[in-house]
Amino acid sequence: MLRPKRLGIALFKTVMVAIIAIWSLLPIAMIFISSFKFDREIFAVPFRLGFTPTFSNYVALWEQWGGFFSGLVNSLIITVFATVLAVLASAIAGYAYSRNRHPVLSSSAFFLIFIRLIPPIVITLPLFPVVNQLRLNDTHLVLIILYAAFFVSLGTLVMRTFIDQIPIEIDEAAHIDGASRLQVLRRLILPLSGQGMVAVAVFVIVFSWNEYLFALIFTTANARTAPIVISEMIGAIEGVQWGVLFAATSIQLLPVLLFVILAQKQLVAGLTAGSTKG
């Protein structure tokens, strides 16, 4: 009696897992595989798995879309600085929120939660003329500050949750030994909250590397990021160079995909901490 039922459940689970895997990976796999195909094989109906792989799309991307590679460099610069800025500021503030209780502090923490409700597109309206006037238009700096600004509130809350898990006795012992608050932060808290900092870094890196709206509004040539260049390639799609587009998309995607997989544990912990605690 029991056996067929168990078999049925196992079969059901296997089918479900297969569907989930196809759903998650098919769109990614399709463009990745197709990026190694000649155009005539991309256009072959039906889709073929067996084909002669070629790097011609990557070569064409290199030769025709040099802007894509400077876009990658811009994305890298912006992502690195936005991440360092957001993680450090969040860690310092998270420490203060974790170890101190005061109505003034609670109000300012509430303010951080409130801030997350303001849609990014709203603030582009006044920032656009201001950025132009300061001649910061089309610089890395604008995007670095914007990306960090939109993640320090979440980052602070995530860091507070992680630092809450470090026993306060450690701080107290250090204070008795005469350590100042900054020394405790630098020597004890920061080294012990590495997991939290990685969690915050995952958010900022994925966001900054992929962001589209701010980059569309605030960059034109010098600071153009990789997603903007890809969107221009889609725009030129009437004479579709699908293969070259797939090559660019694969290059843009692969590093951050690997990173998300490697930092999976911290990503999950960060998502849970960031949403359940505010």
Partner: peptide, 23 residues
Amino acid sequence: LLAVVLAPYAVSEVSAVVMWRFL
């Protein structure tokens, strides 16, 4: 499997549009 399910989290909107337009 968890890594598989998380994969789309890493994908930019721009890349996702390329993928779904192609599909």
